[in-house]
Every structure is written in structure tokens, then in C-alpha cells.
Design a protein around this nucleic acid. Structure first.
Lengths: 201, 201
DNA sequence: CGAATGACAGATTTCAATATCTGTCAGCTG
DNA sequence: CAGCTGACAGATATTGAAATCTGTCATTCG
């Protein structure tokens, strides 16, 4: 039952084992002892790499959140494409990524909802990263004349807040409802229209 | 301890007592027996007016939700004013009403969050009522040329969804954060801009 | 000597026995 | 006799004792 490998015990291996234990047991019943058992070591060894259980949970959470950030950063960085198209694709990709995570493995998604709820700084940093990406797309749009705003960062926050229903985990149960695609499109259309200059000169 | 009055037992009196019991005990510990005790009757009498505890809870919830709807309907019905101003005021009033409820009595607000979470149709009807009011304001705007949209009801839903962060109870803890007013204004500005005709002819 | 162990104290969780609650209904009461 | 009561069965919640977990650290191991 204890898949003892002879590799050295690294933070990375502990995170992998933690993820697996969380997947199997859920957030309420996953213990540090379980993680240590999965690795074939004593739980004291785990505490050598992570000062507390909370720190271990936060590290796993950060890892999970970074997956999404990295996917989106591809769109953000693609500076050849028109900012309007990039903004729409970015928001769509965010929605789709979240929806897929929630739909494909609801229990794991619920697990991460619990983890993010009491994660210290990881979620805040994740949100800052995402709004930063949005800001960069909007700035490109302002530079090209596609968008008009006095404060790209504020507009980025507004766009992010306004699309919360389509990426905030708290709404995950509505993501399966019929018509959600239309709702998403309606909001994005309205926001893109709102970002356009008043009268294209 | 039992404030026995000689008035007849009506649904309305039961609802008042229920509200009071909920305020004192919270949603988890408020029982039908408590409500009956507060009224000085047996719990069997309460079941004469409400078939189940769930029905009683839903009736109290509906009562509470209707307060907000009625406040806003005043703005909706004020057809003398410009649709743009009405729309902004309506959204502001919704935000302020929710924020005041949450801020003034956090425990009662938390109680109603629990009640609404497992309310059958009451919440759905409330949301339909609110989006209906929004639709009516937007239709007035389309008629006056202030707004342009092919489908006012769809735009109303989009506006409602996009402002969820400022009225959805799930976000109540962010309503006290500094800067929330600016966030609200930024989103509303963007939406109002988005509703305006592309080129005023 | 650095990494890992396992016993330990205090905090948290589990579990089963006990108490309370929900919803019904036959009978009481004014 | 319309409205209310209170006993009841099954479901749910509370409680406190026992088990487990978290985080530490003196000791062991390679």
C-alpha cells in the first residue's frame, strides 16, 4: 500500500502526492499523515519541506491556479492579433478552462474551491496576474485605437468583475445551464462595445 | 416566556414570529417548535398554515426579497426621467440596498443567505422580477434613442449578470472593501457606454 | 553531519448513544 | 364543528468520550 520509491524526498514529489491524496479523500479528510503514508515516509519528513499543513495546501493550490494563468498567457502574449479578438478569446478561454475543470471532475473542483477559500495569498496573486494580463491586452487596444479608456488597469478590473459569473467558482453550478453560452456572449458583446471609442474618427 | 396574545393565528403572525426566531436563533437552530412557542401555540397549529417547514421558510424568504423589489420598482416606474439616469440609479439602489442589509445586520443577512440557498422558486421569481424591471428601463431607452439593442431582455440579463459582484450575496464580504465604489462605477460606466448607440445619428 | 524518525502534548475529528425535531392524526375544547 | 392540541414514529441534531491528527523535537540512521 505504500509505494516506496527510493528517490529523494523533494517538495515537488510531496505536492504530487498531496494532489493525489486530495483527489482520493477530499479536502476534509486529507491529512498530512495520509500524504506521508502515500510517500512511504514519516509525517515528520513532510514537515521538513512545508512548515504547516496550511502551507502545503497553499502550495498545491498555487500549482493548480498557475495552470490556468499559463494557458491564458499564451493569448495575452500573441501581440500579432487584434486586441479586440484577443480580449474576446482570452475571456472565452478563461470561461472554457474553468467550465471544463468544473464539469470534468466536479469533486476535484469542489476540493479546490475549499482550498482556495482559505488560501492566504495564492488566490489574490492569481487574480492580480489575470487582471494584469487583461490590462496588457487593453493597453495594446488603446495604442492601436481599438479601445478608448483613461485607465486601462481600471477597465481591466471592470471587465474582469463584469465577467465574474463566467469564471468565479461560486457560479460553477450555472455553467451547465442551457443558454449560458448566450449569456456569456451577450455580456462580452456589451463590454467590447463599451470599450470602443465613442465615435471612431 | 410565551407572549400569549388572544389574536387569531394568521399566516402573517406566524411569519412575523418566524422572522424573530430566525433573528434570535439563526437558520440552523430555528425550529418550528420555537416558532410555536413564541406564539404560545402548539407546533401542530403552525402546520395548519404551512404544510412543511420548508414552505414556512420560503414564505419568510419571499417576504424579505419583496422588500428590495418594491424599493426598486419606484425607480423603474418613474418614466419621467431619462433612461440612462434611471438605469444608473436603479443599479446603485440595488447595490446600496444589498450592502446596507449585509452591513447593518451581518448575522441576519447570513441567515437569509442560507434560506435563499435552498429556497425553491422564491429566488428565481425574485431574479425574474428584477430583470423584468431592467428590461422595462432599457426598452424605454431604446424608444428614446438613448440605448441601442436588438433584444432589450437579453441586454437586461447581460447588465444584471455583469453587475453580479455588486448584488449577489455571495460577494457580500467584498462590499466593505475600500475601492468597491470605484469598481462599481467603472463597471456601470462601461455597461452604459456599451448600451449607447454606436454612432448617434 | 544532515536527513529522517517516531513519541508526545494539545487540538481536532469521529462515532454512537441520547435528545430533539418534523410532520401526522385521533381526539379534545370552546 | 372549526380550530387546536399533544402523543407518536421516523428523521435529524447534539453531546461527550475515544480516536486521530498537527506540529515539535530529542534521538537514530546512513
Amino acid at each position: 500500500m505504500a509505494p516506496q520509491t527510493s528517490e529523494t524526498l523533494t517538495a515537488e514529489r510531496i505536492l504530487e502526492a498531496t494532489e493525489e491524496v486530495l483527489r482520493r479523500h477530499g479536502p476534509a479528510k486529507a491529512t498530512v499523515v495520509d500524504v506521508a503514508r502515500a510517500l512511504g515516509v514519516s509525517h515528520g519528513s513532510v514537515y521538513r519541506h512545508f512548515r504547516t499543513k496550511a502551507a502545503l495546501r497553499e502550495a498545491v493550490t498555487k500549482r493548480w491556479l498557475d495552470l490556468t494563468s499559463q494557458t491564458l498567457s499564451g493569448i495575452t502574449a500573441d501581440e500579432g492579433r487584434a486586441p479586440e479578438a484577443r480580449l474576446r478569446d482570452w475571456l472565452t478561454a478563461l470561461f472554457e478552462a474553468k467550465r471544463r475543470k468544473a464539469g470534468d471532475d466536479p469533486e476535484l473542483f469542489a476540493t479546490y474551491m475549499v482550498l482556495t477559500a482559505d488560501s492566504g495569498t495564492a488566490v489574490g496573486e492569481h487574480l492580480a496576474d489575470l487582471t494584469g494580463q487583461l490590462t496588457s491586452i487593453i493597453e495594446a487596444g488603446v495604442a492601436s485605437g481599438a479601445f478608448a479608456t483613461a485607465d486601462p488597469a481600471a477597465s481591466a478590473r471592470a471587465v474582469f468583475h463584469a465577467t465574474g459569473r463566467f469564471h468565479d467558482p461560486g457560479y460553477s453550478e450555472v455553467w451547465e445551464r442551457p443558454g449560458i453560452e448566450d449569456d456569456f456572449t451577450a455580456v462580452v458583446d456589451l463590454l467590447l462595445h463599451g470599450l470602443r471609442p465613442q465615435r471612431p474618427s
